[in-house]
Amino acid sequence: MFDLLGTKLASRLLLGTAQYPSPAILADAVKASGTSVVTVSLRREMAGGKAGEKFWSLIRSLGVRVLPNTAGCHSVKEAVTTAKMAREVFGTSWIKLEVIGNHDTLQPDVFGLVEAARILCEDGFSVFPYTTNDLVVAERLLSAGCKVLMPWCAPIGSALGPVNIMALRSMRGHFPNVQLIVDAGLGRPSHAATVMELGFDAVLLNTAVAKAADPVGMARAFSKAVDAGREAYDSGLLEPRDVAVPSTPTIGRAVFS
C-alpha cells in the first residue's frame, strides 16, 4: 500500500478524468487503471443544468478518492477561491494547486503558486502544487507548508515524457523524505516506468490515457508500468558501466587451443 498524507492507497497511479470519449469509457479506464485517486475540477453550471450532478454521481459510484484541481486559474485570488469552492463541493481538503503563468506552455506561475500554497496551507488544505523541477521553488513550497510536490516532466498534454532526467533525479536526491509525484507531460507507459525507477512516489496523468485509441487498455498498460517501475526501484537497479562484464562465469570454461 502507498501512504499518501496518511491515506493508504492501493495504487501509485493518479488519473485525470477529462477528455475521455464517453463517461462509460472514463469509468472503465478508472477501473482498469486500479487507481485510488482521480482528479476533478469545477466549472460554471448552466441554470437548471445537470451536467455537474451526472458527472459527480459517476465519480462517486467508482469508489475512488478525488483530488480537485484549480485548473485554468491564472491568479492567486482565482486559485484560492476555486480551492475553497472545491473543498465545499467535494468534501476534501486535498487540492491540486495550479496557478498558470504562460498560455503556450501552461507553465506554472511559481511565484503565485508559492503565495497561494501558503494561504491554503494556513487554511488547513493539503496542497498538491503543480510545479516545475526547480529546487529553489520546491524549497519555497515546502516552507509554505506543502507536504507533497508535483513537478512536471514536460508541458501538460505534450506526451514528451521526462525531458530533463537530470533535474528529476536531482529533485529526488534533494528531497529524499518528501513525497514527489510526477504530474504532466507523460505520454507512454515507459515514461511512467522511467520516473518511477528514479524513485518518484507516484505519477499523475490524464491525456495519455484519455486520448489513446483504447483508453481502457492504455490505463491498464500505465498501471503495469507504474508498478514495474516502483518494484524496480525498490529492488535496486544496476548502475550503468562503461565496460563489458561477462554475465556467464568464466571459471571452468573449456580451453580448446
Partner: peptide, 10 residues
C-alpha cells in the same frame, strides 16, 4: 455571482 459544479479535470 459564480455558480460552479463538478466537472472533469486533469
Amino acid at each position: 455571482i459564480e455558480i460552479l459544479s463538478p466537472m472533469q479535470g486533469g
